[in-house]
């Protein structure tokens, strides 16, 4: 299966950023806050793609590290400072550290075993969030104050402002993911995906490559978590449930694994389907709608949303995907 990092024209990217930034002027406050949450989820999905699509390590743990970032930011907000930049730093660091500690053992496995180990990690983090009282247990973490950008600054209460913060974090995280993908590490990650044995045969330890990728992805997911907390001011264990992990992974496949931007769009499609389309028009049938989207995507978009984009340009005939 030939994967290409989707090439985006800079003008198109700029236009997209401008449109995204204009959202608070175009929509009412509830859709805007939904947009903020979509951006946070999309960043989690991008981090999932960094592992799944770029490194060939499908994972179900990213939502766990997202949760670590979200809860950390919430705890910082309640007990220490409402400064969003501090929360971002702490959340990213905490998630990255946990990714390091868990990754050291998890990355020793591969394939479906690795998938199940990451499932276990995600679920264990979920259970911890559900049970620990100082995290609010099953009621979730409440009482998180509105964030500020600088000491003594105005708290960001309006949905539009928190949305812009979420957009900023999203763009930052996406940029980091892109920079990594274009770096020598990114090349090593793609080599691990294509043939770990070959990579070892040229003298490179695949374990180290995968571990570094795992840590970076975990940190990005943590950053996404802090954006989520800034937007919602509430973290619930339900946000870390297995179903969310599954949706994150499926968003990657829907969007086109390996392209980074495709999965971001896939994330938006999934989140909108579940939290807007189903919630407003087909209450209680979110699963049905999502299921239909997924099944259609498998047959109509063999290389995901991003793949569909690519195939409309002139593609060399041999780069067909093994659908």
């Amino acid at each position: 299966m030939t994967r290409r990092t989707g090439r985006l024209r800079p003008a198109g990217v700029l236009l997209l950023v401008v449109i995204l930034a204009a959202v608070p002027f175009l929509l009412a406050s509830y859709p805007v806050s939904l947009g903020g949450r979509i951006l946070a989820f999309a960043l989690v999905v991008v981090s999932t793609d960094l592992l799944t699509g770029v490194t060939g390590m499908p994972t179900l743990a990213q939502v766990g590290y997202f949760g670590v970032g979200a809860y950390s930011a919430g705890l910082v907000g309640i007990h220490w400072t409402d400064n969003l930049i501090v929360q971002l730093a702490v959340g990213t660091l905490a998630a990255g550290l946990l990714a390091l500690v868990t990754g050291v053992v998890a990355v020793r496995t591969a394939g479906i075993v690795f998938l199940m180990v990451t499932l276990a990690i995600g679920e264990l983090i979920h259970q911890v969030a559900d049970r620990l009282d100082f995290l609010g247990a099953s009621n979730g973490l409440v009482g998180i104050p509105a964030g500020t950008l600088y000491p003594g600054g105005e708290p960001l209460i309006l949905a539009g402002y928190t949305y812009w913060w979420a957009l900023l974090v999203f763009l930052l995280g996406l940029t980091v993911a892109y920079v990594v993908a274009k770096s020598p590490l990114g090349l090593s990650m793609r080599a691990v995906r294509e043939s770990p044995t070959r990579l070892r045969a040229v003298g490179q330890s695949t374990y180290v490559v995968r571990l570094v990728a795992f840590i970076i992805a975990g940190a990005i997911a943590g950053a996404a978590g802090t954006a989520w907390t800034a937007q919602t001011r509430f973290v619930s264990p339900g946000d870390l449930a297995f179903s969310v992990s599954a949706l994150a992974l499926l968003s990657v496949v829907l969007g086109g694994a390996g392209t980074l931007w495709g999965p971001a769009i896939g994330a938006a499609v999934v989140f909108l389907t579940r939290d807007w389309l189903a919630a407003n028009y087909f209450t209680g049938h979110a699963d049905l709608l999502l299921g239909i989207v997924f099944v259609l995507a498998v047959f109509l978009l063999p290389r995901g949303i991003a793949g569909y984009q690519l195939s409309r340009r002139s593609d060399p005939p041999h780069s067909g995907a093994a659908a």
């Binding site: 299966m1 920079v179 020598p184 090349l187 793609r190 294509e194 070959r198 045969a201 490179q204």
Partner: peptide
């Protein structure tokens, strides 16, 4: 046994990077 999804250039780059470069540099 090559990196089948990668281009010819990328395949050989992996070898060069490993020998002369910094294969773990993330930027």
């Amino acid at each position: 046994n090559l990196f089948s999804g990668l281009s010819v250039l990328d395949n050989v780059r992996v070898g060069v990077e490993r020998t002369e470069g910094q294969p773990l540099r993330p930027w």
